[in-house]
């Protein structure tokens, strides 16, 4: 994160004199193509600072603390909804931006931004699990493989270090609705995770690539595009599961925090990122599905060579939970790790 910031700053130094302003991005770590940042800086004469985060919770906490100084952040749908409801976002009339014309119609007017006031989507995908085929040969057609592991996976499983998507996955497996406010249902989720815990090597969200590709663990809770990229680029012997109970869906959008210092530059950047050639470059860099139009002729990943991005099972998007439901989620998690 700091390194990215430093690199960007160093790149930007020679042209700082010509800069017409600044743009401060706070985005998922390593999510934006650095070549596109450089291109935007040259084109718009704007100095771009990039900072990274690793969880929606970090982002929400930072925005709630106020005066973050960021111009663009990229929350997932369920957090975007909370931010909009809490008045943490700038109404940028997203539907009037050129970028909006590039958005795939199926992602317009969704529940997290019904009037398309705040957001232009950047990427979408799923959360599921990946197995290392050198260490695990069995089937990957159900969450049962991960949550109720057989002997060959016991002690060789890693989960993420925050509850958000893990509890969603457990709910899919048990048939419990997302954001359930029923303690009895959530107790079942807890029981499932507590029974799984002795077989979990670690709950961690850092350094996942090395852990699963290197075989430190044989199964890892993970995201579609990340899993695809190390298989595609580094030939890692891994497979992203398609559990029949479904995958947890997410969609990250570019939004402008309330009181952002450089709103106009932010809009420029959103339009820039959504231009077809740039959206394609971003897709090729990030490896997660693009919710805006891309040039299929130059797109690196297709249904044939990147099946991870084209799920064959149902995808259920995380929702914004009520405080009561969120308390149950926290309760499950705290009791699990007490």
């Amino acid at each position: 994160m700091k390194r990215a910031l430093l690199a960007t700053t160093l790149c930007a130094l020679p042209m700082a004199a010509a800069a017409e302003g600044e743009l401060n991005l706070y985005v998922w770590s390593d999510s934006i193509d650095p070549a596109l940042i450089a291109k935007f800086e040259a084109e718009a004469g704007v100095k771009v600072n990039v900072d990274g985060y690793n969880s929606n919770e970090d982002l929400l906490t930072k925005l709630q603390a106020g005066a973050s100084g960021y111009d663009i952040v990229t929350p997932s749908q369920h957090f975007l909804k909370i931010m909009a409801d809490q008045g943490l976002l700038e109404d940028i009339d997203a539907h009037a931006l050129a970028a909006f014309q590039q958005v795939d119609p199926k992602w317009r007017g969704q529940w997290w931004d019904e009037a398309n006031d705040y957001s232009i989507p950047l990427a979408y995908g799923t959360a599921g699990f990946t197995v290392n085929r050198n260490h695990y040969k069995g089937p990957v057609d159900s969450w049962k493989v991960l949550f109720e592991p057989e002997a060959d996976l016991q002690g060789k499983i890693a989960m993420l270090s925050y509850p958000d998507e893990i509890i969603g996955a457990a709910q899919l497996y048990l048939g419990v609705p997302f954001c359930s406010e029923d303690p009895a249902e959530m107790k079942r989720v807890y029981d499932l995770l507590a029974a799984q815990k002795p077989f979990v090597a670690a709950y961690t969200s850092d350094n996942i690539e090395n852990r699963i590709a290197g075989g430190e663990v044989a199964a890892h809770f993970w995201w579609d595009g990340n899993s695809m990229k190390i298989r595609f680029n580094d030939n890692a012997p891994i497979e992203y599961a398609m559990p029949k109970e479904g995958l947890v869906g997410w969609l990250d959008s570019m939004v402008v925090p309330k009181g952002a210092p450089n709103v106009e530059n932010a809009k420029k950047f959103i339009d820039f990122m959504s231009r077809i050639e740039n959206a394609t470059a971003q897709y090729n860099f990030y490896g997660h599905s693009a919710p805006v139009a891309i040039d299929t002729a130059t797109a690196k990943y297709t249904a044939e060579n990147a099946p991870e991005l084209f799920p064959t099972v149902k995808v259920e998007f995380s929702r914004s939970c009520s405080p009561a439901a969120q308390d149950l989620v926290t309760k499950v998690w705290t009791q699990l790790l007490q």
Binding site: E57, L60, Y162, T330, W333, T334
Partner: peptide, 13 residues
Amino acid sequence: GNLIQTQFGGGRN
């Protein structure tokens, strides 16, 4: 330390 972090982050408390 982790407990405090959880409460400010995911726990929203």
